[in-house]
Design a protein around this nucleic acid. Structure first.
Length: 288
DNA sequence: GAATCTTCCTGGGCGC
DNA sequence: TGCGCCCAGGAAGATT
């Protein structure tokens, strides 16, 4: 599934292949892909036709194209890839993918942009931009660790006040965005902290360390994943080379911990799974 | 308001 | 071999 580093690679691909072009055609297929647009897909299509793509931006796992309408108004085409979403850049006459939900054509008659999503967790919406350049629906999403607005000390302060498991806090998009289950487990492993520890029970230096590990692991994935993508594909199937080689905790149940050799354990967490080292990341004795 | 639970969806993988 | 079930995941909205 696309995590923040993959979404950033997609954004860079959009920067290269889509920014600077004028949309002349937008076709949506299926009832679910267009989100929160009461007048419906046809209206959204009409609103973005003849718009110029001015920029491709990202916060956490949200992507958006800054569009300039013919009347000069700026708004955003907001895209979330969900679990299985892909953006592809292809010849207009290439065969349609089974789960293609949107196709965008451009004035230069060049490669078209397609949104393909097997599970339809992803979606597309038209949004107004706030004064700070963030689309309205992204307003409640906190800065991610890879952007300029990232303020580690402020996030530590907010996490310290949370009366909940530190992994829940790490996954809370209103505190820090872009950290999914995989990177949460990797950051906790690196920091030697069990995810069920109360956020408020950790020291500020420990929380700082955890956040710095989260940032670092995503930077590493970005530097590895960024080179493994076909130039024509803005994204590939969510699997970057990083996941094959570099995971220390996530999905490693039973394998020896690379730090101490103990077998990595798997525990249920929020109807999902957490992976951790039983020796490096001892469970808290008491957990509410 | 904070914390937690439920729901959306479908393909891959597994057990029987 | 094939059927049915479980699982994965982010985030909105509901519920406590």
């Amino acid at each position: 599934m696309p995590e923040l580093p993959e979404v950033e690679v997609v954004r860079r691909g959009l920067d290269t292949h889509v920014v600077g072009r004028r949309i002349t055609r937008a076709d949506f297929r299926g009832a679910r892909v267009v989100r929160r647009h009461v007048p419906g897909p046809a209206d959204l299509s009409a609103r973005i036709t003849d718009n110029l793509v001015n920029a491709a931006r990202r916060r956490g796992k949200y992507l958006w194209l800054v569009l300039e309408a013919p009347d000069g108004h700026h708004h955003a085409l907001l895209i979330h890839l969900g679990m299985s979403g892909q953006l592809l850049v292809e010849e207009p006459d290439a065969p349609a993918e089974r789960h293609v939900h949107a196709r965008f054509g451009f004035a230069d008659d060049g490669l078209e942009l397609r949104f393909v999503d097997q599970r339809t967790f992803g979606g597309i919406a038209l949004a107004e931009l706030r004064r700070d350049g963030i689309p309205d629906p992204v307003g409640h999403i906190a800065p991610d660790p890879l952007e300029g607005a990232w303020d580690e000390a402020a996030v530590v302060t907010r996490m310290k006040s949370r009366n909940t498991a530190v992994k829940r806090a790490l996954l809370d998009q209103s505190l820090v965005s872009g950290v999914g289950n995989i990177y949460a487990d990797e950051a906790l492993w690196r920091a030697g902290i069990h995810g069920e520890r109360l956020a408020s029970s950790l020291t500020r230096p420990a929380l700082s360390r955890l956040l710095r590990h989260a940032r670092q692991v995503m930077l590493e994935a970005l530097s590895e994943g960024g080179t493994s993508f076909d130039a024509l594909y803005v994204n590939v199937n969510g699997a970057s080379g990083y996941f094959d080689r570099s995971l220390n905790a996530y999905g490693q149940e039973g394998r020896p911990c690379r730090r101490c050799g103990a077998a990595i354990r798997r525990e249920p967490f929020m109807n999902r799974s957490s992976f951790s080292c039983p020796r490096c990341q001892p469970r808290p004795r008491i957990r509410a």
